[in-house]
């Protein structure tokens, strides 16, 4: 149930002791946070635990949010640092482009569909799958720009980069996404066209 209140109004209420008001922020941002976490951590259960942890961290540090940026930008900074720390701790494979596993996984995904299912797959599903095959850095920048509606400056703030570097990274991420689409879904795209 959305209250329609601005993020900062909800934050003021939470800081005044109205803890339940925080649920509105959780409801509002949970799909964004969860999607971003999934770009780093492919396991849904682990990703959900990390996403919960992010909201708890954000709650505990809420007094430190200085309202100089959007709440979402501040929250995604916590997402970025928490995911990087999690991956470092677990020393997980980060599904980089050079990682053989990406291609193994992609091949498995591809070969798992029958002819009929392939025909029914929309371009949207393919794009979503291709994004999940990208390395976390590329997938994150695409998600922040297109889904979380963050500007280049805001993404720069989240990732600790200059806006121009973010722009270059976004261009490269889109290029790699296109390569992934061509590599794994070329036939399907042709069938749909």
């Amino acid at each position: 149930m959305s209250t329609g209140l601005h993020d900062n109004e909800i934050i003021s209420r939470v800081l005044q002791g109205e803890q339940n008001a925080y649920a509105e922020l959780v409801n509002r941002y949970q799909p964004y946070v969860f999607t971003l976490v999934l770009r780093f951590i492919k396991n849904r259960e682990e990703a959900e635990e990390v996403a919960q942890d992010i909201f708890i961290k954000a709650y505990r540090s809420l007094a430190d949010f200085r309202r100089e940026s959007k709440f979402s930008t501040w929250l995604y900074t916590i997402v970025n640092t928490t995911c990087i720390t999690f991956l470092r701790k677990k020393r997980l494979d980060t599904y980089s482009l050079d990682n053989e596993k990406v291609f193994e996984m992609a091949d498995n995904v591809d070969s798992g569909f029958s002819a009929n299912q392939v025909e029914q797959k929309s371009k949207l599903t393919m794009v979503t799958k291709a994004i999940s095959m990208l390395n976390p850095d590329d997938a994150e920048v695409i998600t922040l720009f297109y889904k979380a509606e963050q500007s280049l400056e805001e993404i720069g703030q989240i990732l600790g980069l200059e806006p121009n570097t973010v722009k270059v990274r976004l261009h490269r991420a889109r290029q790699r996404l296109k390569e992934k689409m061509e590599l794994h879904f070329a036939q399907e795209v042709r069938d749909l066209n």
């Binding site: 959780v26 409801n27 799909p31 999607t35 959900e48 919960q52 809420l62 889904k147």
Partner: peptide, 28 residues
């Protein structure tokens, strides 16, 4: 297409879990 991709949704209990957890904490 990139703008239209769907966001992933966590489990239905997600908000409840977070709220139960934060009840144990105070804002620093």
């Amino acid at each position: 297409l990139l703008k239209s991709t769907e966001l992933e949704e966590p489990s239905m209990r997600f908000t409840k879990n977070v709220m139960e957890e934060i009840a144990k904490y105070h804002i620093a």
